[in-house]
């Protein structure tokens, strides 16, 4: 297990999520795929946070101040915010899907074409 391997996993999951988000007709599946992409990004961020030396520490490795330690956790902080946004996104996304379903009796993205020219 090393950084490259974790990033490889993250990239593959992201690519799968992207492929699914672009190709599935069911809006709920699309949302699930987007969640997959979020998760892939989270994995990447946490992995980078764990393995890569932050600039604040790398700049002067001989005498690292204690305050520089917090930059080791930047990726994790990012992840927390991404999770927050993902939660908000899924709530709204599902609400929209339900609203469309109520109106059109369909959850297919391809059927919601009111905004075309």
């Amino acid at each position: 297990m090393n950084l490259e391997n974790v990033l490889l996993v993250g990239a593959i999951v992201f690519a799968i999520g992207l492929y699914g988000a672009l190709t599935k007709r069911n809006a709920i599946t699309v949302l699930m795929c987007i969640e997959l992409m979020f998760t892939a990004v989270n994995i990447t961020a946490v992995a980078l946070s764990r393995y890569v030396i932050p600039a604040a520490i790398a700049v002067n490795p001989g005498a690292v101040p204690e305050t520089a330690m917090q930059s080791l956790l930047t990726g994790q902080i990012f992840t927390i915010f991404i999770i927050t946004i993902a939660a908000a996104e899924i709530a709204l996304g599902l609400a929209i899907v339900m609203a469309i379903f109520r109106n059109k009796e369909s959850v297919f993205v391809t059927d919601a074409t009111e905004m075309k020219r």
């Binding site: 990239a11 593959i12 992201f14 690519a15 799968i16 992207l18 492929y19 672009l22 190709t23 599935k24 007709r25 069911n26 599946t29 993205v109 391809t110």
Partner: peptide, 18 residues
Amino acid sequence: NPFNRLRAPAMTLAGLFL
């Protein structure tokens, strides 16, 4: 859970991205 018509380009794109 069907696919739409964009499978081939989406696949290519995801591959390129990867």
